[in-house]
Amino acid sequence: MKLTIVAGARPNFIKIAPIIKAIKLSNRLDYRLIHTGQHYDDKMSKIFFEQLEIPTPDCNLKVGSGSQAEQTAKIMISFENELLNYKTDIVIVVGDVNSTMACAIVAKKMNIKVAHVEGGIRSNDSTMPEEINRIVTDSITDYFFTTSKTANRNLIVSGVKKSSIFFVGNTMIDTLLEFKDKFIKPIFWDDLKLKKQSYILLTLHRPANVDEEYKLKNFISEIIKNSRNCKIIFPVHPRTKKIIESLDVNDSNLVQLEPLSYLEFNYLTKNAKIVITDSGGITEETTVMGIPCITLRDNTERPETVTLGTNELIGTNPKSIKQALDKLFNNKWKKGSIPELWDGLTSKRIIDVLLKLEKDICL
C-alpha cells in the first residue's frame, strides 16, 4: 500500500514524526512525504526536521506565505500535480492548518481516500481559521484517527459512521515522550539565571489576541503586573513580532526571544512555573508534563486538557489573568491527569489500523 503524508506547518511536523517511524517499523508500507512549505524558514521548519529525525521530504511544494485564500490555492494547485505524477492509495493529513484542508480537497476530487489524524476536534468557533479547516476536512475524510472520545462524539453527531472512526490517542504525545530525555537547555538559560519553576513561559499568536494592539498590550501588561517579579520568557511568533514592535511593553522581567526549536521550547515548558498561551497543542504538552497552563481563549478544541489536565481556560479578558496567577502563587492549582491513550503508542495504533484496512483502501 502506498501512502502520501502531508505536512505544512510546525505543529504538523511534530505529529508526523512518529507516524513515519511507525511506518518504517512495519516494513509493509511505502510512503511519500510532502512538505507544502506553509512554514518554510529554518526556525519554523528545518530545525524541526533535524531535531525530530524526520526524513527529507520527497517533495517540497514551496508555497510560502500569503493570505488564507492565496496559500490554500497554491497548495491545491501544486498538490494536484504531485498526485498526478505519483500515484498513491491514501493521503494522510494531520491537524488543522491550511495544508490539511487543501490537500484533503485535492485528494478527494481525484477519488483518492483521505485519512485525518486528529479528526473530530472542535472549538465551535467559526471565527477561527483552523475550525473551518477542521470542518471541511472532516466532511470529506474517509478514515478518522482521533485523540479523544469527545472527538469521536463530535464526528458521530455530524453524521460520520462509527466504523470510520478510530480512537488511537495523540501523536504529539508520541513525540513528546520519545524526546523528553533529549530536551536542550537554551543558551540563554544561564545568562538569565533561570531556575526550575522560577519563570513564566508565554506564547501568543492567534489573530484575535495579537492583531489588536490594545488587547495585546493589555495582555502583556497584566501578566507583568501579576507575575510577582518572575521573569516572563516570551518566544515571539513572527506574526506577533510585527505588532509588538510598535507597543511600549518593555519591562526588565519580560524577555522577548526569537522562535525556539522543539527541544529548546519543551525544555522551557518542562521547567516553567506556568505556561500562558493561546495555542492548543501546547496545552496538550503541559497536561502530559504536569505543568500549570493558562489559555487566553474563550473556547478550546482540546477540552480534555481542562477537564482532565492542568489547563485553565480563562477567556480573553486581560483582567482574568490576575485571579488565575493568584491561584497559582497561592498553591491552589489543580494537579491534573493524563487523558486516555496519550501513552506514546498512538502512531503504532494508526499503522495497525491502516494495515487492517489495506484491502478496503486499495479497492
Rank of each mutant, 00 (worst) to 15 (best):
V63I: 13
S65D: 09
G66F: 10
G66S: 14
S67F: 12
S67R: 11
Q68G: 15
Q68R: 15
Q68L: 15
Q68N: 15
Q71W: 11
T72M: 13
A73S: 14
K74W: 08
K74A: 07
K74V: 12
N81Y: 15
E82N: 06
K87S: 13
T88D: 06
V91C: 11
V94N: 00
V97G: 08
V97N: 03
A102N: 03
C103I: 01
I105E: 04
V106F: 03
V106Q: 00
V106H: 06
M110I: 05
M110Y: 04
I112L: 06
V114P: 00
H116G: 02
E118C: 05
E118G: 01
R122N: 08
S126R: 15
E130G: 03
E130V: 03
E130Y: 00
I135A: 08
T137R: 00
D138C: 03
D138Q: 02
S139Q: 06
S139I: 04
T141V: 09
T141E: 02
D142A: 05
F144D: 01
F145S: 08
T147I: 04
T147D: 01
S148D: 12
K149I: 01
K149R: 09
T150V: 14
T150P: 07
R153P: 02
R153N: 15
I156M: 12
V157T: 07
K161N: 14
K162W: 05
S163Q: 15
I165E: 00
F166V: 06
F166N: 04
F167N: 08
